[in-house]
Each structure stands twice: as structure tokens, then as C-alpha cells.
């Protein structure tokens, strides 16, 4: 791997500032765990340096061919010939930045509960059964146009202790890197039409209804796989770099 000399990365354009009022606040008491885990001091605003304007680069060669197929990847890894149980779906979309530029070759990681709402995790003790053919772990990389897709089963809703038994809407957790550490993002994807979305204290940490809407994947009947799988469309937007015509502007000018 070759490193970028920092003199070159120091000259990279800055990212536009993150709109912290659009993201959920750290302290959101409707989601009780935030109460003791939210910093009380204001975040320290600082310009970006080379360490914020670059980030780790992942190679497609690290991916296994079944990494983006949660229907079969766990079974294959454990030597089973089976497939995951549940409603077969494909999720696809584009990763762009706030200026609409595609974000190519970026790593997208996903994790989720099985069709019954149970995670394959040491700490999940929900009474719904594990599916012997489902791990709930996948990853993929966007292509040169920022496009991605993965295949899975639709996750089930599950209860969690918050205000007694609250229920999470069906969701897929996702993590995306972008081209710089400043673009790093972890969030959750929900499904169009789920009546649990407006009831969820975690969803409702986000104040703006338009922001919540951006986390809802849309049923894409045009792309359905007949007699096989339903398809959902979900686009992801990462922070945008300021226009390149500022690139040569010298500090202090």
C-alpha cells in the first residue's frame, strides 16, 4: 500500500460541516441508554487536517464472493447446504456525497436479526429461535458509480427493554466508510410501511421527519426478481467535499 504524503493530503478540499441538528442529539432521554452515554460538554469544532480528509482504503480482494449474500453466506461458512428462512429480499442503491457525486469502491457492512427478530450474538437472549442457516453478517463494496446491492431475508421486529417492552421496527444496521474518516457513518435502514417506525424511541431520537424518511428503504417493484425476491431501494448520502475550484486557494487568503 502506498501512503499519501501529508503535504498532498493537507491540500485536499475540506468537507462541508456536519449538520448536527439533522442527526440525532447525543442526549435523547426517550432512549434511556443515551442519558449516561452522552457527553455534556459541547463538541470542539476544529478545521480538518490530513487525518480527517483521508481514511482507510479497503481492497475488493478482501471480500469473499458470498459476503453480500446473507441468505447463503453463513450456511456456506459453516458447511451447511441450507438457506436462511424468511422473506427473501435484495437491497440496492447508490452511495453519493452531498454534492451528488458517487462514492466508488467504499466498504459497506451490514448486520441484522433473523426473520424471527433474533440476533446471532452472545448477548442476545430473545426467545425467538436462531436460524441454523443465518448469521446476519454481510459486506459489499460500491462499484465505480457508487452502486451496491446485497441479498438477505427481511429481519423480524424484536422487543427491547426501554419503557418496558419497546419494539424495534424491522431494520438492517449498516456501516459505511466513504473516502475519508470525516465521512464515517453508522446507521440503520427501515422498511417502507412498517407501523413500528413512528413508535420506536431509537428512530425518534431524530427530530426531523424528513431525516427519518431518509432511513426508510422503498419497495422497488420494478426491480423485483419474479418468483424469487422482493427488492428495496436505499440510497446513502455521505458528507460532501467543497468544490474543487477552492483547492488551490492558499491558507489565509
Amino acid at each position: 500500500m502506498t501512503a499519501t504524503p501529508s503535504s498532498a493530503s493537507a491540500a485536499l478540499p475540506d468537507f462541508m460541516r456536519r449538520d448536527r441538528a439533522w442527526h440525532p442529539p447525543a442526549f435523547a432521554p426517550g432512549y434511556k441508554t443515551t442519558v449516561l452515554r452522552s457527553p455534556k460538554c459541547a463538541l470542539l469544532s476544529l478545521d480538518q487536517g490530513p487525518g480527517e480528509k483521508t481514511g482507510p482504503v479497503f481492497q475488493a480482494s478482501m471480500l469473499h464472493e458470498l459476503d453480500n449474500d446473507l441468505v447463503s453466506n453463513y450456511a456456506a461458512a459453516t458447511g451447511s447446504k441450507g438457506l436462511a428462512i424468511g422473506e427473501r429480499i435484495i437491497v440496492h442503491g447508490r452511495v453519493t456525497d452531498e454534492c451528488g457525486r458517487p462514492v466508488p469502491r467504499t466498504l459497506l457492512e451490514v448486520w441484522q436479526a433473523n426473520a424471527g427478530g433474533r440476533y446471532r450474538h452472545k448477548k442476545d437472549t430473545y426467545l425467538a429461535p436462531l436460524d441454523p442457516n443465518f448469521g446476519g453478517c454481510g459486506r459489499t463494496m460500491t462499484d465505480e458509480n457508487g452502486r451496491y446491492f446485497f441479498r438477505t431475508v427481511k429481519p423480524g421486529a424484536y422487543p427491547w427493554p426501554n419503557h418496558g417492552s419497546d419494539w424495534r421496527p424491522a431494520h438492517i444496521h449498516f456501516s459505511v466508510f466513504g473516502e475519508a474518516f470525516a465521512q464515517r457513518l453508522i446507521s440503520q435502514l427501515y422498511f417502507e410501511g412498517d407501523p413500528l417506525i413512528p413508535l420506536c424511541p431509537i428512530v425518534n431520537t431524530i427530530k426531523d421527519a424528513a431525516a427519518i424518511e431518509r432511513l426508510v428503504a422503498k419497495l422497488d417493484m420494478g426491480e423485483q426478481r419474479p418468483f424469487d425476491a422482493l427488492v428495496y431501494r436505499f440510497d446513502i448520502v455521505l458528507r460532501g467535499r467543497q468544490q474543487t475550484f477552492f483547492e488551490n486557494k492558499r491558507e489565509g487568503m
Binding site: 462541508m16 456536519r18 449538520d19 439533522w22 442527526h23 440525532p24 432512549y31 453519493t96 456525497d97 452531498e98 454534492c99 451528488g100 457492512e109 451490514v110 448486520w111 440476533y119 446471532r120 450474538h121 448477548k123 442476545d124 448469521g135 446476519g136 453478517c137 454481510g138 459486506r139 444496521h173 449498516f174 456501516s175 457513518l185 453508522i186 446507521s187 440503520q188 431509537i202 428512530v203 431520537t205 431524530i206 424528513a210 431525516a211 427519518i212 431518509r214 432511513l215 446513502i236 448520502v237 455521505l238 458528507r239 460532501g240
Partner: peptide, 21 residues
């Protein structure tokens, strides 16, 4: 007008499944 960044949500207690299986 620019596109708005996808809003963040907690990584949750089971973040390890996807990130540190």
C-alpha cells in the same frame, strides 16, 4: 441546495456481528 447526509443511528449492542463477527 445540497443533498442532506444520511442521518446517524446508534450502532446498537450487536454492532460486533457486522464489524467484528
Amino acid at each position: 441546495e445540497y443533498l442532506k447526509e444520511t442521518p446517524s443511528q446508534t450502532a446498537g449492542p450487536y454492532v460486533h456481528i457486522g464489524t467484528l463477527p
